[in-house]
């Protein structure tokens, strides 16, 4: 992935799919990132009654139409997770796992599935709270860390962190089984990992230590790692201006960062498929204008 794409589109709901189609029609190179089976929120809809031309269509069928349309236009979906988007000035750098990909413009169409932050989370971000174990692990050499993982793939990060940290307490929020019994099985070569099945409630800094309040009592450590499936847009794109829980955009779907556009539920209500598709179209056309202005 050494080349620089014209536009990277993040999200495969109606906004992302629509943006990818329009950008491709306008002859731009597109990197479409998201779920290969398009957004769950489309396929799980029972019935959509107001999508023009497709009366009373079940979500699953609409999702199939989206996939067919992308296939017909030869737009592949890259099913990988973007962890960070950096505004570098006249281009963007997207961190995908440990790899960096460049794009001249970015369209953010990630929906609104992210949860609320824990009390105390935002205030302590970067001051004891981290979202990236592989990024900050080396700062925890000989120290204690708590990791809250939202998917089994985070177990690899726990193993990595446990190589450096003196002690790691792992809270897998996705597991239902008895967690205490899981540690030897999950981390056979990491005796310094303790697994706890508790529900995190809030974060506090006390006497220079980070304290995680849970329904099973407090856990204190030097740092707390929160490894979520999706992060809020402000954390995904440092410097992005928000309007409450949504990304602030103008009528051209432009954000405060030149070259970065947003479309769909992420820009605010109404949460409607057809509104998202329309915004995806506007965002793509705005991105095309931006890309053309760069080439002048």
């Amino acid at each position: 992935m050494g080349k620089r794409y014209d536009v990277a589109i993040i999200g495969t709901g109606p906004a992302g799919v629509s943006a990818a189609i329009t950008a491709t029609v306008r002859n731009k190179s597109v990197l479409l990132l998201g779920s290969a089976s398009v957004s769950d929120k489309v396929s799980k809809a029972h019935m959509i009654q107001n999508y023009p031309g497709l009366p009373d269509i079940p979500g699953q069928e609409l999702a199939q139409h989206f996939l067919d349309h992308l296939k017909k236009m030869e737009i592949p979906i890259t099913d990988r997770k973007v962890t960070m988007i950096y505004a570098m000035g006249d281009y963007f750098s997207l961190q995908i796992d440990q790899e960096f990909v460049e794009a001249s413009a970015v369209i953010l169409a990630i929906g609104v599935s992210f949860g609320k932050p824990f009390p105390g989370e935002d205030e302590n971000l970067g001051r004891g709270v981290s979202y990236c174990a592989t990024c900050d692990a080396a700062l925890y050499r000989g120290k204690e860390a708590v990791v809250v993982g939202y998917a089994p793939k985070e177990e690899a990060d726990v193993r990595f962190l446990a190589e450096m940290a003196q002690k790691v307490t792992y809270i897998p929020v996705y597991k239902k089984e008895d967690a205490a019994a899981m540690a030897p099985e999950l981390f056979p070569d990491r005796p310094n990992v303790e697994v706890k099945q508790v529900k995190p409630l809030g974060i506090e800094k006390r006497d220079g230590r980070m304290v995680l309040a849970t329904d099973g009592g407090e856990i204190s450590a030097d740092g707390i790692f929160l490894l979520r499936e999706s992060v809020s847009p402000g954390k995904l794109v440092p410097g992005l201006e928000l309007d409450g829980n949504h990304v602030k955009v103008d009528r051209k779907m432009a954000t405060n960062l030149p070259g970065l556009f947003a479309a769909g539920d992420i820009t605010g209500t109404p949460y409607q498929y057809v509104k998202s598709a329309g915004e995806g179209n506007v965002a793509a056309l705005s991105a095309v204008s931006w890309i053309d202005s760069l080439k002048k």
Binding site: G89, L125, P238, G239, L257
Partner: peptide, 9 residues
Amino acid sequence: QVGFVPQPQ
């Protein structure tokens, strides 16, 4: 200031 920030910020 902790973390990445774009140049204007």
